[in-house]
Amino acid sequence: MTASAAATAAATSAAGTAAPVPVEGARPVVLVVDDDSRVRTVVAWQLEAEGYRVVEAGDGGAALRSVVTDRPALVVLDVSLPGTSGLDLLRRLRAEGDLTPVVVLSGRCGEGDRILGLDLGADDYLVKPFSPGELAARVRSVLRRSGTRGPSRPPATPDPASKLRIDPWTREVELDGEPVPLTAREFDLLAFLAANPRQVFTRAQLLEQVWSSMRSWQSEATVTEHVHRLRHKLGARYLVTVRGVGYRLEP
Rank of each mutant, 00 (worst) to 15 (best):
F192K: 02
V173P: 07
V173C: 07
R185M: 09
D176H: 12
L190V: 09
E186T: 12
D167K: 08
E186M: 07
E178R: 12
E174V: 04
P181L: 03
D176P: 01
K163N: 13
D176G: 09
L190G: 14
K163M: 09
P160S: 04
L189H: 07
P179N: 01
L175H: 02
I166M: 02
T183I: 13
L189P: 12
L175F: 01
L175A: 00
L189C: 05
E186D: 11
I166P: 00
P160T: 06
E174H: 11
L182P: 00
T183S: 14
D176L: 03
R185T: 12
E178W: 01
N196F: 13
R171G: 07
P158Q: 03
T170I: 06
P197E: 06
P181E: 08
F187K: 10
P160E: 09
E178L: 02
R185E: 15
P160A: 08
V173Y: 11
N196R: 15
T183G: 15
D159E: 11
P181D: 03
D188N: 13
T170A: 07
P181A: 09
L182F: 03
R185W: 11
E174P: 02
T170K: 13
G177S: 05
D188S: 14
L164P: 05
P158N: 04
I166S: 01
K163H: 15
P197F: 07
A184Y: 12
N196I: 06
L182R: 01
A195T: 11
P160I: 02
E186I: 07
D167R: 00
D167T: 03
T170S: 14
V180E: 04
L175E: 03
A184S: 15
L164M: 01
E172R: 14
D176N: 11
R185H: 11
D188Q: 09
R185N: 11
D188L: 07
P181S: 08
L193N: 08
T183V: 13
P179G: 02
A191C: 15
R185D: 15
A161I: 10
P181Y: 04
N196C: 04
A195H: 10
R171Y: 03
R185Q: 10
L190H: 12
E174I: 05
S162P: 04
V173T: 08
N196G: 09
P160D: 04
F187W: 13
A161Q: 08
E186N: 14
A195E: 13
W169V: 04
W169G: 04
L164F: 04
R165Q: 12
A184W: 15
D159M: 02
E172M: 12
F192T: 05
A184Q: 14
L182T: 06
A161D: 15
I166D: 00
P158I: 02
E174D: 14
G177H: 05
E174R: 15
D188F: 02
A195F: 14
P160W: 03
L175V: 02
T170Y: 08
P158L: 10
R185S: 15
L190D: 14
R165N: 02
R165P: 08
V180D: 05
L193V: 13
R171M: 14
F192I: 09
D159Q: 04
F187V: 08
E178S: 05
F192E: 09
L189T: 07
R165L: 13
D159N: 00
P179S: 11
D159R: 01
G177F: 01
A184V: 12
A195D: 10
T183K: 14
V180K: 01
D159K: 00
V173H: 05
E186V: 03
L193Y: 14
G177L: 09
P158F: 04
